[in-house]
Amino acid sequence: MIENFGGNVARLRKEHGLSQEEMAEKVGVNKQTISNIERGVRYPTFETLEKIAKVLKAGPIQLFGTMKEIAISDTENVVDRIDDYEDRVQAMMRFAKVFDEQYLKEIDAAFHKTQYIHQLFTAQPIHDEEGNILVNDSGEKEMTPAFFETIPFDQIDNLVKKIDYIKDNKKLL
């Protein structure tokens, strides 16, 4: 047990992001003492041991145990975390089910409307009677012009001008 102490202190210190100097300052000893403890050259007094445990927030198993013993002692924490994550996953699954039921039809309808609008602004391939896309002699798809390209805006503009003229001059007519 005591042979694991130095390595465990070094590992825990590093996990807490502390340098040997910072650790020594928090424990109230010099850096060399921490170095000696970690290398197993020296063992702490009970008072220093208590301070090390407090700084590292570690119990006896974390300080003196083997890696296997430490892993076994953490099992309860792992099980608690698994339970917590299981609850979260279940909540996400319930949300997904509600989302699917309520919003999937709306999303699908919005997608189809967007697709329709896109088709109004882009050229579309021409299909034969069997639904196959027609290809020209160059191997390129034959395309119909976009719907909005076929609108006779100049004729509509002339018609609007004529209607405006009639509205403005209806007293003369």
Rank of each mutant, 00 (worst) to 15 (best):
Q32H: 07
G6D: 06
E130N: 15
V89H: 03
N30C: 04
E25F: 05
E129L: 13
E3A: 10
S138D: 15
F148L: 15
F64V: 06
K14C: 03
E149Q: 14
Y43F: 10
I163G: 00
N169F: 11
M23G: 06
M143T: 10
T33N: 08
F153N: 08
I61N: 01
M93V: 13
A53R: 05
T75H: 01
A58M: 06
I117N: 07
Q62R: 03
A123P: 12
I133P: 07
A123R: 11
T66A: 08
M93E: 14
A146R: 03
I61A: 08
I34L: 07
N36C: 02
E69W: 03
H112L: 12
N136Y: 11
E47N: 00
T66K: 08
Q102D: 13
N136Q: 13
I61F: 08
K167A: 09
A58S: 03
N132M: 10
L18C: 02
N158A: 15
R42I: 09
V41Q: 05
G7C: 05
K161G: 11
N169C: 10
K54G: 04
A71P: 05
A91R: 13
F95Y: 12
I37H: 01
S19M: 05
Q20Y: 00
Q90N: 14
F148R: 03
L18A: 01
Q62Y: 02
I133E: 12
G28S: 06
S35V: 08
E15Y: 06
Q124C: 08
V9D: 01
L104T: 15
E21C: 01
K105R: 14
A123G: 15
M143W: 01
G17S: 01
S19F: 00
R11Q: 09
S73R: 05
N136R: 12
I151T: 00
D168L: 09
K171L: 11
E15I: 07
